[in-house]
């Protein structure tokens, strides 16, 4: 009896304490939440545009319903399989490849002692800052049939025939993965690098005193400590698995028709199809479709993570 009373007294005090502590915290959160509300939640009801037959006179909310008609074009086409497959496969490869390289580079950079590592870090970030069209020009400089660097300065001296790069499908998965890696590595490694720098150095000192090699230190200390970050970033990437980098898949292959089977993604298909139609409801439908699939996948992945590594789940 007495214990129960003590407990309730304690819980009351605890709640009060948390309330007193919570108010300044809520105040801290307020500007951010306000922004989120204005920027993200206020326009969100507009999602129903995807289900409407839009007529300007009635606005978005007054327009007549169209049911799922606006989604039809995404599924009824013979390309539906190709674009979905391309989008998903590329994203999976991107996630894996970018992860390996970003973590690898971050680890290397964090361990290098010399001053030149600052130079490395700055230089590898630069490609991220270039717009997709400029990147497509640069890729063209390398892959152009007549004047391209590869055809002229590598294949010709070796006595090989020039390759019509923009018409051969088989090279492009590799080209696109490489360009995506090239563009993103400087940016992607930053978050891992800053996390690694925050690790307690004494762990490494202790390990090296115990005779651990560099490789052992990396695999036994750094990687496990990085796990939460890796899991979080991967989960977020899974949420975007139905999206693709439009610039990469449309501009870099120069919209070459011969390459469509390997470069056509949901985003490029929608863009090409709607360019003349200018149909805002159909493009809204594509957005909803992509979001919905990403949402379901992330929830599932998160559930999985919660079973295996509960503290690292997103929510």
């Amino acid at each position: 009896m007495a214990k129960a009373r003590d407990k309730s007294k304690m819980s009351k005090a605890w709640r009060q304490a948390t309330l007193k502590r919570s108010i300044p915290i809520y105040l801290m959160a307020l500007p951010g939440l306000l922004y989120l509300f204005i920027n993200n939640y206020m326009p969100m009801p507009g999602i129903i545009l995807a289900f409407k037959n839009y007529k300007a006179k009635f606005g978005i909310y007054g327009s007549p319903w169209a049911g799922l008609k606006n989604f039809q074009y995404l599924f009824s086409t013979q390309d539906a399989y190709v674009i979905t497959r391309n989008t998903i496969l590329y994203n999976i490869v991107f996630i894996i490849v970018n992860l390996i390289f970003a973590v690898g580079v971050a680890i290397i950079l964090s361990e290098l002692v010399s001053k030149t590592k600052k130079v490395y870090q700055s230089v590898i970030l630069l490609p991220y800052l270039l717009s997709a069209v400029i990147v497509s020009y640069l890729v063209y400089a390398f892959l152009s049939s007549e004047n391209g660097f590869i055809n002229n300065s590598i294949l010709k001296p070796l006595g090989r025939d020039p390759i019509a790069w923009y018409q051969e499908q088989k090279y492009w998965p590799f080209i696109l993965v490489f360009v995506n890696l090239w563009k993103g590595i400087g940016y992607n490694c930053i978050i891992y690098l800053s996390t690694i720098i925050g690790f307690d150095r004494s762990l490494y000192e202790a390990a090296s005193i115990d005779g651990a090699t560099k490789w052992q230190q990396i695999t036994k200390i750094t990687l496990p400590l990085l796990k939460p970050t890796i899991i979080m970033l991967t989960l977020m990437a899974i949420g975007r698995i139905f999206y693709s980098d439009f610039g990469l898949f449309y501009q870099v292959p120069q919209n070459s028709g011969a390459l469509y089977p390997v470069t056509n993604t949901i985003d490029t298909y929608v863009y090409r199809g709607l360019l003349q139609l200018g149909d805002i409801t159909m493009s809204a439908a594509a957005g909803v479709y992509q979001s919905l699939v990403g949402f379901v996948l992330v929830l599932s992945a998160n559930l999985l993570v919660r079973k295996l590594e509960p503290e690292n789940a997103l929510f």
Binding site: Y73, Y260, R272, G273, L275, Q276
Partner: peptide, 14 residues
């Protein structure tokens, strides 16, 4: 419109 988007993509390829 659904046919149109598919046709545009198909024509654009060739």
């Amino acid at each position: 419109t659904a046919e149109y988007t598919a046709l545009t993509n198909a024509y654009s390829e060739y």
